[in-house]
Design a protein around this nucleic acid. Structure first.
Lengths: 210, 210
DNA sequence: ATCAATATCACATAAATATGCGGTTTAACC
DNA sequence: GGTTAAACCGCATATTTATGTGATATTGAT
């Protein structure tokens, strides 16, 4: 039996969903409130539900802030956002805050039910449009970076040593070469990268510019 | 009418899917090959399909490399991966390469059909397990960082100077203070961060650990 | 009013780094 | 067989960093 809770300030929608879910054989929906604050009150006293359906636009605390707080206190609760917002910011903020699913409000009752079951089975319910936005997120950052300075394998070793915070001496020890050889490599690295300090090499490396 | 192409080296599966899709009223699936190379040959001569179903493990070029090449040449083709692999690396590599969906091979024929329609309507078909992994990607980076070393504003300024690759002298110039003051700040920064070199501060900073 | 933290500055010194110039050996390439 | 690139080593020196031990002024909290 899956215990479902609802945080939604539109009474009509809330009652509709609650009645529908509570009617299901494998679900129970006893707690439906209209703010995160109320839900937190409830959680303090009662057994927490397995799944929460949550709106974003709410009186008082926003649903996204709510995710953070609830997930922190009750990490086992899976949260599905149910909202009209389909802008990337709200989607990503929700997911980063800890939501496990994101549905748009036009989702039908049977689909909501299915999503909850889906979640219980280790899935992550998302409206198709949302999934699209999430996937687009991965396509975006592509063309940004493609520097490729060609350091030799050994030079890359030395750079890694620098990034690990090692001194020349320790790098020499790590690779069992003399400190003067380390110096030589570093000289060459500086030439190739057009820099003249350890700091710049580390910065470049950690920025993925090598 | 949605034109679908298939790149899949298992003949049985390929034929099964092709026949099923071609049978649908709103779809046509005329081209089904067993390698990316063959598909590229085909695309050079014929009208490109709207959607491609693609395996990852293929003879010759991998499906992921295939996405890159095909999307580069024919950006309008939407690609759905259809594979047995559910490891994060393959999923993310596929999405970054330009895939619009990612289905696991146990997906039923009607679900595949539905996914293609879904895609045509602006969605992004994903198996629930895949969606879960994608969502987990966003949750990940959160608990990673919890450093909270409380540097003062001035100390943070100095750190930024270091990250910018400046020497003590240049940092002093930037903030119009003496080099000895820079030294003093850096001493304090080292104490707070438990390090003892510029390199480590820069590394920590760029890793978001400050 | 006192205390703690911050920001500022100074002097001194050891250690590390940056840079110049020199070299040998090895493996790959034409 | 000569050329080239890489990896290796050494010595010298100027600059930069790391660290110690001071000190003063300002500020916000107790």
């Amino acid at each position: 039996m899956i215990e479902v809770g609802i945080v939604e300030d539109n009474v009509k929608i809330r009652n509709l969903i609650q009645r529908y879910l509570d009617m299901q054989e494998n679900m129970s929906c006893k707690i439906a409130v209209d703010s995160v604050e109320e839900m937190l009150e409830y959680l303090k006293e009662m057994q927490p539900p397995n799944v929460l359906l949550m709106d974003i636009q709410l009186p008082g605390m926003s649903g996204i802030k709510g995710i953070e707080i609830i997930k922190k206190e009750y990490p086992s609760i899976e949260i599905i956002m149910l909202t009209i917002y389909h802008d990337s910011h709200k989607i990503f903020d929700s997911l980063v805050a800890g939501a496990s699913g994101y549905l748009l409000k036009h989702t039908s009752l049977p689909e909501i039910k299915e999503s909850i079951e889906n979640l219980a089975e280790g899935g992550a319910p998302m409206s198709p449009q949302i999934a699209r936005k999430v996937i687009q997120y991965f396509n975006q950052p592509k063309p940004v970076n493609k520097p490729e300075s060609d350091l030799t394998a050994r030079e890359q070793d030395i750079v890694n040593g620098l990034v690990d915070g090692l001194s020349y001496k320790l790098i020499a020890d790590r690779f069992d070469i003399s400190i003067d050889t380390v110096r030589a490599h570093i000289r060459n690295i500086y030439k190739k990268l057009h820099v003249n300090s350890k700091a710049e090499v580390i910065a470049k490396s950690l920025r993925g510019e090598i």
